[in-house]
Amino acid sequence: MIRGENLSKRYGDMQALAPTNIQIREKAITAIMGGSGSGKTTLLRLLSGLEKPSTGHVWFGDEDIAAIPESRLYELREQMGMLFQYSALLNSLNVYDNIAFPLHEHTELDEEVISTIVTMKLEQVGLRGFEELMPSELSGGMAKRVAFARAMSMDPKVVFFDEPTSGLDPISSGVITTLIKDTSDKNHMTSLVVTHDVHAGLSIADHVILLWQGTIIAKGSADDIRNSNDERVQQFLEGRPDGPIPFSRSTTTYLDDITHKPGTVRLEP
């Protein structure tokens, strides 16, 4: 359903995503995993049309998201939902109005019906009774859960989740993960889940994509990933500090920097 063709993104000198071909399976959960700064958010923003690619195309059905007129893009977005990494709740609206926002905008439903939907969504994320709070009065984890409810309020066909569980306690995290799995199955939803959480990611995903420094280093089913021979994949799964993926993203040697010698560039492994 969504397909990236030769997709890449550059920010100035920084190649955030190297040219990539990617296929997102319809009505399935695709987990995008990878270290910090590996280009996961960038990939999500490209696929959702929030960012224009430096090269390549994003096919949504048979339409190129980067090339269609704005009005058509907004039509397509009525079927999409997105959970932002930093929640991105509308500051001027309370919890209720944030979740009801898409419903108010795009449906003709009675307020009573909308109120019922909001209550149901809030119950799912365990925040029923918090309708009147403003976003500034929520903790990070609560805001994340409200953002989750908002992303789901229109029962979208395609949902982009950027780190749905980061900043959540283990219980909320478990609930949200299960919720993604259940709603995807029940509503035949296409889900893209960006996550650091290896176990959650592997347990719910039908398809996994592993990114490293803007390149896909592995893709396949969860078992394919678990059984991969690639050292980098194994290191990521086990969270080992030593291995082919350096923890440090610096390109100069520590000793030189700390003794203020002109930096010698370290060779990439």
Binding site: L50, M82, F84, A88, L89, N91, R150
Partner: peptide, 18 residues
């Protein structure tokens, strides 16, 4: 400006509001 910093404009876009 603040709406942009906090990605609220992006959120609007994704909720199909220009």
């Amino acid at each position: 400006g603040i709406m942009r910093v906090t990605e609220q404009t992006d959120a609007l876009e994704m909720m199909a509001v220009n």
